[in-house]
Amino acid sequence: MDRVSIQAADFNLADEIGALRADDRRVGAVCSFVGTVRQGYEGNNGPPVLEMELEHYPGMTEKSIEAMIDEARRRFDIYAARVIHRIGVLQPGEQIVMVAVTSAHRGQSFQACEFLMDYLKTQAPFWKKERTPQGAQWVDARVSDDAALAKWGIEKRNT
């Protein structure tokens, strides 16, 4: 099974987890994260988001996330990982991204799941543009996302 998918289509978390742990009886823990499109910009205090468009760098996106999964496997005792990221136009409430990880015990998959999301947020080449009643604008990167990656000992600045 592919570890990384960049796709316009939606995904089904239960199906993905089922495939990820199928026939692997070593698995005792599955941890997953799903990111969705928020309706409100700026911590739900700004203008409503009518839709969001996701652009990426085909080729680099896949390679960079594959490298992140390799790094997660070096750092944590995990069995399998799967990342799906959607591109194109999405509506508020829709799923954007999914990370799922399997391991023998919960600690390693919890950590690997968070590590992968922290890494992806600041190092995978995606860009979000939001359309609001006031017009379209590119989403600003957050300094707090750099801090999230730094807590894993990785000093790579995005902002």
Partner: peptide, 25 residues
């Protein structure tokens, strides 16, 4: 297609990309 920085050396045939800070996830 690998994140780099301003000091990186270029070679013939390189693919160089410029873009704003990333905002996926």
């Amino acid at each position: 297609q690998v994140m780099s920085d301003e000091s990186a050396a270029l070679a013939d045939g390189c693919e160089v990309a410029f873009f704003p800070p990333v905002t996926g996830g």
